[in-house]
Amino acid sequence: MLRLPELEVVIADSLVAALTRLAEGRHVRALQGGTDLVANLKTGQTKAQTVVALGPLSELHGIDTSGEMVRIGAGERLVDVAQNAELQELFPALTYALARIASPQIRNAGTLGGNLCLDTRCRFINQSDLWREAMGGCLKSHGHECHVIPGGGGCVAALSADSVPVLMVLGAEVEIARLQDGAVLLRRTRVADLYDTDGLRHVRIADGELLTAVLVPKLPEGARAVYRKWAVRQSIDFPLVSTAVRLDLDRDGKLKQGKVAVGVLGPRPRLIPLDRWVGRPIDETLAQQVAAQVFDRCHPLPNVLYDHEYRRERLRVEVLRAIRTWFTPTAAAN
């Protein structure tokens, strides 16, 4: 069986201590549930000398729904967020998305922060040492060329986190901690701005920084979001198509504002505003038009293991079906 390489494991006893170690560089990695990092360390695609286990840090825990911005600690387990009754009431699309991540065991260990920081995935990198050696490597491993986009200059491995598209349309922010002069400093950024186009380092979190919480604004009256995931299997799989749609309706049921977020493209998810349809009723025509727009603007790549042209068509259908939930009572909503 695959074994982990030798590692130093630091169990952080304070946020300051964790941030101090993380500031040493990329060879020190933050560890939450370990469901992504441990697998990547075992296959050798991620190299680290030290992992900093964050489990005990109280700053990363807690779900607070009292304010206008709901605060969810980054260290909250996916299962706890997904099953939180208040969150289910406030953000059913989010809890639904989290409940569709991987498998029960992984949701019992994995955390919300961990999902947001999930490494990008690609069929040329999520392989064994031998496989990557046989291929001659790629931009994300030891090689110099991209096999997804021949001649491509940047890594286009896919962001595959189920939580991201839905948090984007909800207008969520993340809280990021770092140390300055020995004190913990917090900054905030929108989830929509958290990701970069470089698959080698797609999360805009610097060495020495740590994602500590997710903040989600409560939805105004008339607003709702829907998440749609497609994978070959109903469990275990990462998404092959991942999209969230949010529509805010006025009192007449016309579109006030709306947006669609799409994951599993490249390293960066895409956010598509629906401004051009403002004032329109939500019907099949609108659904078809929005879906066509998403199809036009999104080009799934052959980076994950499924026919990318089908993924593009499937994305269109999933957007369509998401919007249909607004006017077709029998369509599955979440």
């Binding site: 549930g33 370990g34 441990v38 286990a53 992984i106 019992n108 260990a109």
Partner: peptide, 15 residues
């Protein structure tokens, strides 16, 4: 109490 994957859980973290 929660089912988790032992192959993904560092042993030192079950302290």
């Amino acid at each position: 109490g929660a089912p988790v994957l032992a192959c993904m859980t560092l042993a030192v973290l079950v302290q």
